[in-house]
């Protein structure tokens, strides 16, 4: 019983964890891409890694926090433009292929010996090297605070301050996305998602709208990357293809093209993921023929299967519209 409580507390902790916020923000960005515009970005982790590098390297070079933040956003913008230029005039698959490849290039370059002096190669950048300016911003008093069953330091890496900042950024992103998607601009994006030729025939510059959406979602991805590395370190191998696929799972789980879908998806995903992983390690589940060292693999398989099941049976996710599903069934 005590053990179950421990598992539950761990899982509750995931609801507010900075990584959950990071995935939520990345999924909000991906939602701008896929949910609203229909762009198949399969390289969101590339945007995140680039944002993390941009922020980390800028901070280490002496840039103040907000400048480093802007540099990360600029890196995301540039990346989006480079990926968008050759592909946004072509069929959607090409964007998918190019984004997954480009994300992999970023990771390869990051971990390569070429830029070792800046990126720290495969070992990455230690958190302590770039966290200072962020932690100095904190206005919280030092010490620990317990809210419900969750207790963290007020300041520091894995702290309330990090959580406060991360979720503030998520809320800000939600407001921006809400303002944008209820506007005529958002309507054009949705039109592009449905049929870009029809929108083109009405005199809209579809290419430009797709590019704007790619940049917006990419910048949100870069910011998500910063959140992701604020409590830890920048490790290129932790931000690869699997991360992208998880962001997709998070977004589709909550509901693409819905405002709160990505946030709900992220919270639910990490809550359940922790319960599964921690739960399988408890004595209660000893009857399962799964050795402890394979728990993560089993959990990973479950993530993959979940993604397949969502896409097949509930493509609109939890918050998606029933009427829209009826259309899909036609």
């Amino acid at each position: 019983m005590e053990e179950l409580l421990r598992v539950l507390t761990l899982a509750l902790g995931e609801l507010l964890a900075p990584a959950t916020a990071a995935y939520a923000l990345a999924a909000i960005g991906l939602n701008v891409h896929f949910g609203y515009t229909g762009l198949l970005n399969v390289g969101q982790a590339g945007f995140m890694l680039l944002g993390a590098y941009g922020f980390g390297i800028a901070t280490i070079s002496g840039a103040p926090f907000w400048v480093a933040l802007l540099i990360a956003m600029a890196a995301g913008t540039l990346f989006a433009v480079i990926l968008g230029l050759p592909t946004l005039k072509l069929r959607g698959d090409y964007l998918a292929i190019v984004t997954i490849s480009a994300a992999e290039i970023i990771r390869m370059l990051g971990r390569s010996t070429l830029f070792d002096d800046y990126t720290g190669g495969s070992a990455g950048i230690r958190g302590g090297d770039y966290k200072g300016s962020f932690q100095e911003l904190s206005f919280l008093p030092d010490g620990r605070t317990m809210i419900g069953p969750l207790e963290y330091l007020n300041n520091g890496s894995d702290s309330w301050w990090t959580r406060l900042f991360a979720w503030s950024l998520v809320i800000l992103a939600l407001v921006v996305v809400w303002l944008l998607t209820r506007s005529p601009w958002g309507r054009v994006l949705k039109g592009v998602r449905e049929d870009e030729d029809a929108v083109r025939a009405l005199g809209k510059n579809v290419y430009s709208y797709k590019m704007q959406a790619l940049i917006l979602g990419g910048v949100l991805g870069s910011l998500a990357g910063i959140i992701f590395v604020l409590p830890g370190a920048i490790a290129p191998d932790a931000m690869g293809r699997t991360m992208t696929f998880w962001v997709w799972t998070v977004m589709l789980l909550g509901g693409a093209a819905t405002l709160f879908g990505p946030v709900l998806g992220s919270m639910l995903f990490f809550f359940v993921y922790m319960i599964v992983r921690a739960g399988m390690r408890t004595d209660v589940m000893e009857f399962l023929p799964i050795p402890t060292q394979n728990v993560d693999h089993v959990a990973g398989v479950l993530v993959g299967v979940t993604l397949m099941l969502i896409v097949i049976f509930r493509p609109q996710g939890i918050l998606g519209n029933k009427k829209e599903l009826a259309l899909d069934a036609r």
Partner: peptide, 27 residues
């Protein structure tokens, strides 16, 4: 090419020209 997951009204509104709300920042 009906834009299926837009309402009928949205379909027609989308066609309007020179809408300042269709610019990203103004929107």
């Amino acid at each position: 090419k009906a834009l299926s997951r837009l309402t009928v009204l949205e379909n027609v509104l989308l066609a309007a020209t020179k809408n300042p709300g269709e610019r990203m920042f103004a929107s």
